[in-house]
Amino acid sequence: MEIPYTVELRRDTGLNNGKIGIWLFLASEVMLFGALFASYILIRTGAPSWPRGDTILDVPLATFNTIVLIGSSVTMVMAWASLMRRRFGTYRIYMGATILLGFVFLVVKYFEYTHKFHDGLFPSSNNFLAIYFTLTGLHMLHVFGGMVVNAYFWGPGAKLWKTNPAWFTNRVEHSGLFWHFVDLVWIFLFPTLYLL
């Protein structure tokens, strides 16, 4: 059975089903991170004192990671633009760069985490570290998930380009929407945890 509305637009919504699906998923993701941000506000405002993030965390590393993640958003959107221009080879380069930048982000986070553990700083140490590890840990899982999907579209999933290029282009656009969302979350996490 053929999946309906993968390329053609529904008359009632003016969208393909994949686009609606990913936006509804992102709406649920907003609420997931929103709940944790609300927890952060509650814990911080209820605490008698709260440390500045830059006294505990590594701001230069996090700044580097911010640049890496924003860069990966650009390569992601350029991958989609390459498909729109029917340049599959260029798409592969940009998508590969996106996956690589995601990997760099995770490696930097690994060094940040191990440095904290080496200093005896764990989620159980205090409320600041509990919320730091929870928020950044969940974000890292999202980066990893996005990388898996992107790797699929870089490798085996790219076979669809030969048989249905418009559908493949839509799929890459939808995985890009998730990747940009992950970037967007980090844009708020970075000042909230590291700089304030």
Partner: peptide, 30 residues
Amino acid sequence: VACYFMHLISEKKLIYAVLTLTAFFFAALL
């Protein structure tokens, strides 16, 4: 990021409707 990379600047009404509802509940949560 949302307007240009996610193309929200030129999206369909249904997406805006979903996001308006999301923004309302997100604000309530915060």
